[in-house]
Design a binder for these strands. Structure first.
Lengths: 202, 202
DNA sequence: GGCGAAATTCATCATGTGATGAATAGTGCG
DNA sequence: CGCACTATTCATCACATGATGAATTTCGCC
């Protein structure tokens, strides 16, 4: 299987963005199976390309992974969306709305899923996730929590809930929470998240 | 590496619980690397045994996994701990206390971690997790939520937060939440969880 | 139009995997 | 004691993986 390649050897005509297609395929397959589960061959096949070409462009599998994770969505934008008009009021609702936005679209879901899945099996990926969450997201969101005691802890608790929601809804697919409409989730979860901002906690 | 086996061929003396040791090693290694990442050879090595012996006892890797997942902790007991004196009051605190109890001890953490990690890579494991959560835990806990509108959804939202907490604290090891003492976590998270019971949500 | 560089595939390697079957060493029952 | 059974290892298979180097085809520049 997977033998259906283009033609024989040699360069293809025109100027196809093969590198980009490989990256897209990588995000997809890494997302479906995680770092270890995604074979270079499978990614190559998904891109309709020989596996050697993948190595030609990216050298090693690890470098391909890093390249595929290179922010295809902008963490800063996400942070901004969460902070919005600045101010703690409504931060819970904005957080879950942004979350559902990212996870709702396959284009942005794929890389995040890939990262999350891989972080569960590969220490390198876990490190990457940690950095991403810490620097790109928390670093900015913390502005909202400044002045609030234990702001970092509160913010991380919020993030942890969202990560768990992602797993239960998009990976394990536990019902009914996997099928409930977005709006209903917002009404359920936003006030709870909000409590991490409002709540008393010395 | 991994070549340091006991002696030569043949049965060992005495009546060692080798099968049990293999199961323990399996839980450990499955917990560290997930289903796909854990090789039969690695498990055998961790048990100080030839890999063929693992197959002798359990046949296939999948069967070994299932055997290793055979609840070495009692989900019913967990459910009971959460329900306790019965009544929604304090359900948030009891939930996170029970959670921290399970994840605090390596003996009970290993199999749950194994299941969670594997559920991220292997559909079979995801199915297993779903069943476990659905039947063993939610099935019982739902008694507390009966009468409450959308009880199932609320309960699952609670569970999702705890799963996310497990990942952030024990897998990705995000600081400071990974190092904060249990008691502090209880004070932070219990009231938030409680809101899933008390909160208004039509 | 020729020529070097880039894009692409093919053949191949070394390694690790799950699994199987045969061989050896110990146990316990008669 | 003898003999069946079990526990255990060793040798090996077929297969998938990540990686590399050589061969082939096309592009773009002078």
């Amino acid at each position: 299987m997977g033998k259906v390649l283009r033609g024989r050897s040699g360069r293809r005509r025109g100027a196809p963005d093969t590198k980009g297609e490989i990256l897209a395929a990588a995000r997809q397959v890494f997302g479906e199976r995680g770092y270890d589960g995604a074979s270079v061959r499978a990614i190559a096949a998904a891109a309709g390309v020989d596996s050697a070409l993948v190595h030609h462009y990216f050298g090693t599998k690890e470098k391909l992974f890093l390249a595929a994770m290179e922010i295809p969505f902008d963490p800063a934008a996400i942070a901004d969306a969460i902070m919005d008009d600045a101010g703690g009021a409504g931060v819970g609702e904005r957080a879950i709305r942004t979350f559902l936005g990212v996870w709702g679209q396959p284009a942005s879901r794929a890389p995040v899923l890939a990262l999350l899945r891989s972080a569960m099996q590969h220490e390198a990926a876990a490190r990457l996730l940690r950095q991403l969450v810490t620097r790109a997201i928390l670093g900015r969101v913390l502005v909202v929590f400044e002045g609030v005691p234990n702001g970092a802890l509160r913010a991380e608790a919020m993030v942890s809930h969202l990560i768990g929601l992602a797993i239960v809804r998009y990976v394990v697919k536990l019902e009914p929470i996997a099928s409930v409409p977005d709006e209903e989730l917002v009404r359920l979860i936003a006030p709870v998240l909000q409590q991490y901002y409002d709540g008393a906690f010395e």
